[in-house]
Design a protein around this nucleic acid. Sequence first.
DNA 1: CCCGCCAAGTTGATGCATCAACTTGATGAA
DNA 2: TTCATCAAGTTGATGCATCAACTTGGCGGG
Lengths: 155, 155
Amino acid sequence: MDAQPRWLDPEQKAAWDSFIRMQETLIGRLSRRIQADSSMSAADYIVLVSLTERGGGRLRFLDLAKLVEWEKSRMSHQVTRMAKRGLVAREECPDDGRGAFVVATPAGYKAIEEAAPQHVEHVRRLFVDALTPHQLSTLGRLSQRVLDHMEKQPD
Amino acid sequence: MDAQPRWLDPEQKAAWDSFIRMQETLIGRLSRRIQADSSMSAADYIVLVSLTERGGGRLRFLDLAKLVEWEKSRMSHQVTRMAKRGLVAREECPDDGRGAFVVATPAGYKAIEEAAPQHVEHVRRLFVDALTPHQLSTLGRLSQRVLDHMEKQPD
DNA sequence: CCCGCCAAGTTGATGCATCAACTTGATGAA
DNA sequence: TTCATCAAGTTGATGCATCAACTTGGCGGG
């Protein structure tokens, strides 16, 4: 009944395997580094970077969620945890009774300002420095191409 | 005191951002697909593939963990969950009283045999088909290069 | 006005990831 | 033999991710 599965050919499979292993290793090492260097999680880091650098330290809940491309539920749980640790605070929105702002606290600013340079160093050391500038830009271009392709595809 | 942080230059940052977004989107969509198609998690899938295709359906615990490059604790929890769902079973090791085998059950085989072709189709559709063969092999080569580089780096 | 609908955000349940602490069995040296 | 040590695997605690169900407030039409 079914068509034969169309497996990847050896070259395709090798490329896919390398990509997957690289990506897992890299992300794993970077997150563990963030944790160890700053006692923040990778999720904390992303949220604080977006909030402070792109949102000026204060954003509506859903704007923040869109910025990092997270579901609102994920963000809500995350903000709850971060608020418990004092990295951000929730504030009411006067314009919209349902709404909420997320605000970076001074401790949040301090944490991100300390963590960011270290994180960048690790990105450099593990990733950027592995490639020539030309190779790096090729990898970026190919990534963007895959992204563009995915956006045209159904889920 | 500290040296100025050496931020990424705009080209580097663009490449890094594209890579990160691509990788997150891709992995996210593929895992959700596996879940939806087969009611297995991505973790279940990886374990079953390794166990059946590379381990002949039966492996010592730590061999399996090494194969997928997981910590033993992670694998132990995962095997517990999978055993509860009937995908694998634990068996005692006669040679080594501490040891344990992990064995794929018939249900495990059935699950992976149904899931694998669909998964490959999604990898093709989202990733492989986004690139020309030449681009794909370039991406594979660059990934491998980053991997090799990371292996030489301390944690 | 009021009612249905939608938008914003929360909550609870479940599964996954990680770390540290623990148990138990193998092993080699005195 | 016996003891210290190490290897194999488990367990518990905690935080993160995802899904579905829920609450509350805004909004537009009758």
